[in-house]
Design a protein around this nucleic acid. Sequence first.
DNA 1: CCCTCTGGTTCATTATTGTCAACAGTAGTT
DNA 2: AACTACTGTTGACAATAATGAACCAGAGGG
Lengths: 269, 269
Amino acid sequence: MSSTVAKALTLLDHFSENEPELGLSDLARRSGIDKATVHRMLSVMADAGLVEQRHDTKLYRLGAGILRLARIREKAFPFATVLQPELDLLAQETGETAHASLISGRALATVGICESSKANRVSLVVGEVLPFHATASGIATLAFGTEELSARVLAGPLDGKTSFTLTDPGRLNALIETARQTGFGETDQTNEIDVYGIAAPYFDKTGLACGAVAVATPSHRMTEALRGKIVGAVLRAAQVITSGTGGKQPAGYPETVRKTLSSLPEGSA
Amino acid sequence: MSSTVAKALTLLDHFSENEPELGLSDLARRSGIDKATVHRMLSVMADAGLVEQRHDTKLYRLGAGILRLARIREKAFPFATVLQPELDLLAQETGETAHASLISGRALATVGICESSKANRVSLVVGEVLPFHATASGIATLAFGTEELSARVLAGPLDGKTSFTLTDPGRLNALIETARQTGFGETDQTNEIDVYGIAAPYFDKTGLACGAVAVATPSHRMTEALRGKIVGAVLRAAQVITSGTGGKQPAGYPETVRKTLSSLPEGSA
DNA sequence: CCCTCTGGTTCATTATTGTCAACAGTAGTT
DNA sequence: AACTACTGTTGACAATAATGAACCAGAGGG
């Protein structure tokens, strides 16, 4: 992990909706890299258009080049666009916050959000990167992703985000196995306190999971009935997204889903 | 320009709408970098989520992390979203292809396009990076951008894209000066044969040009009347975009525009 | 006026990187 | 089957580019 470009690219991770503009020293402190180094990195990234510096405040922010790249990606492989309507529907059906993510290197990138209309809801920071091991989306993705990916995650560091986070590879693997049986991932407060997550994977054209769509609920509000409703809705949404993006469910998955749905209390799609 | 991250980031420039997926050797050949080096670069960029490799074809494409970053950028500084409707209107008004770009390092990044409905129209490749010195958008942006930027462009290499391209710094500077007088940039076949461009700059909140909106027409179709219509429409669109994105026109600019508009033949906004 | 922030720059040391070669796998041809 | 030509991938060594402490200059604040 000591490659120069890797270090340079981690700088991008510190930008978020809440802090879209960051100063040089600030960025250096957070990343633990020397000021001079950060300055050089930002300079070349500015040249490439990935970031840009405001001439008045000297602060750095994400650049216009990113918009350009995103346009190419979306034009060639529409995802966010076909995904958003389905997210909106999902949030409306369940009454809770829905979001979707894609595998992005060693983590999950949030590529779509639709917040619940309830006053008490789970609110997500746009653009946050989600760890695999502590989120329902991550579990769901790992359960149906490549063997290599889950091995890498199980091997890598498992940060304890909350006291509920599974940091033991064995127990984490058991959770993934459960998801593999049921067809969806489920976690309670493993990434953030008082957040209950239920997520279903969607697949690329080779039948491998490339991300997950999830619904996040305040833990105390979760009931058996709501859980059933969400599971059904999430599984349905994932199927629509899979086919809508040219994906294909792997062998056996439809049966898994059917079995899971029939075991739910009642009232689902 | 021999920084490692710079070289790594140039790899991203080879992706376009036409070629959204590229192989390792192919990428190495185009960039002139050794295969092994490219492989390492792509690996770390894949880790960061900027690119991703398909497990079946081994080809690389732009990754999901870019979508995430674009979301942050758009959420914090909405541009593409507020821009697109105005582009559509502009294309409809003029009957020609309209596009908009932003300063992105050493070049302009195309961040929005609306193609003409005419059969014979100028068609743009989505996601292309435009050189400053050979495009109307570039001239317009330079004319009202920082002194430092135009100096850098005038100093840098001025590739002859066509036989009409101004490769002489002196003559190029004169063209920029003209744009500064009239308030808009104008080029004929300097970037591509048979393409006539007219572009007006929009400004950030400090009154500096941060990009331009342009209309591209087949050269042979250009007439004095059409030219007048386009100039008026482009100037108006740029003003709307400027205010719509929280920008501010620099001192004296409104008068420049007014003077230009009054000298046009007739029939403009 | 001093102190402490900020962004930016310099330069000798050292570790990262580029290079080149070989390797493995696939597809097409002979 | 063997040969070719092409992939993507990995290793080792020489050379280059990254590093980080110290240093500037400027902006506030007390």
